[in-house]
């Protein structure tokens, strides 16, 4: 188990360094940073002096080394556009995105899994069939379209819910939350459902397929033959076995929720990191782009590491040495 963890950690670090290389190459290849920083009237000499002072004439490996060591302590330099440190920018925007993604992820998992289980157990019931049909809509419609439809329906026609922004937020230290005010919660409803819908349907279909397979196995049949009650069979034996392969996919999907947030945030004018990222691309604000890239990859790698540990925890065949059966 220990060597497994060490191996996974080392792999994660390799992945992060690879992403850092890509992020760093943004500085080199997406326009000239000096050009982006200075005005039209700066002379060539002044430009050269600035270049020297900022270390841009150093060889590539040394620049990369500086980038990595700075990034490791959260220092991604200063935004070209906002002229304040990138880390401050991100810290300001992160709570909005994290709140939105986490709520969406929870919605996706806690609605998707029960729906999947339900449709697997009552395979040909009317409700299952309706779920399955609706889930096709969830999978096939693009996020932005669903968002716009929601805005049109609940914001414009019914006027029940706000259509943009976070509403009133409460600051707790550096963290700002919309969960403590009524308008904050109301503002969260539409974007989080929009963001969760795709993952929810995916998880539901995945759980359904996997569960149907598990329900056909011998040990489920044997559990029935022992007279166990339906609930004990379905939730005591089948569900846990269903979740093992599903965990991996859910882990990857939760990482994607973050990435999908960009679109949702744009549609709902949500003041999060996704919006920040889109604006940075428009303005070629390279430090922000690099920092965002690094952060997303860190979250992806982190979730995957967690999934691996969880996997080993849930499945005894991985942790306990199976050698005894070789006898």
């Amino acid at each position: 188990m220990f060597s497994f963890l060490v191996k996974r950690l080392l792999q994660s670090i390799v992945v992060l360094i690879a992403v850092a290389l890509i992020a760093f190459s943004l500085f080199k290849f997406v326009g000239d940073p000096i050009n982006n920083m200075v005005g039209q009237d700066t002379t060539l000499d002044e430009r050269e002096a600035l270049r020297e002072r900022l270390g841009l004439n150093d060889p590539f490996p040394i620049q990369f080394y500086h980038f990595i060591t700075d990034a490791a302590v959260g220092d991604f330099g200063i935004s070209y556009r906002h002229k304040i440190p990138v880390s401050d920018l991100i810290a300001e925007r992160a709570p909005a995105t994290l709140e939105l993604s986490i709520i969406s992820a929870l919605l996706a998992v806690f609605i998707g899994i029960p729906m999947g289980v339900y449709t697997a157990i009552h395979r040909s019931g009317f409700i299952s069939r309706s779920f399955m049909t609706l889930s096709l809509v969830g999978i096939s419609l693009p996020t932005f379209l669903i968002g716009i439809l929601f805005i049109f329906l609940f914001g414009v026609i019914l006027r029940w819910l706000p259509t943009f922004g976070r509403g009133e937020v409460v600051a707790i230290g550096w963290w700002t939350t919309g969960l403590l005010t009524w308008s904050g919660i109301k503002s969260l409803i539409l974007p989080s459902i929009t963001l969760a819908l795709f993952q929810m349907t995916l998880i539901m279909r995945l759980v359904r397929t996997e569960m149907l397979e598990v329900l056909c196995t011998d040990y489920i049949k044997f559990a029935r033959a022992r007279g166990l009650k339906e609930n004990a069979v379905n939730f005591g034996h089948a569900l846990k076995n269903t979740l093992i392969p599903v965990i991996t996919i859910i882990g990857l999907q939760l990482g994607l929720v973050m990435a999908f947030a960009i679109i949702t945030e744009t549609v709902f004018q949500w003041p999060g990191m996704g919006m920040l990222f889109i604006q940075s691309i428009e303005e070629v604000d390279v430090p922000v782009m690099a920092a965002y890239l690094m952060m997303i990859s860190l979250i992806f790698v982190g979730i995957n590491l967690l999934v691996d540990i969880l996997y080993a925890y849930v499945d005894p065949r991985l942790t306990i040495d199976g050698g005894s059966k070789h006898g």
Binding site: D218, Y219, K221, F222, A232, K240
Partner: peptide, 30 residues
Amino acid sequence: LRGKKIGMIFQDPQTSLDPLKTIKQQLVET
């Protein structure tokens, strides 16, 4: 009736037991 009056044993012992539960859990439950 199942288990209480009529029991059943299947062909493949490799697949007849829930792999995620200990023997004790499965026995005690039943």
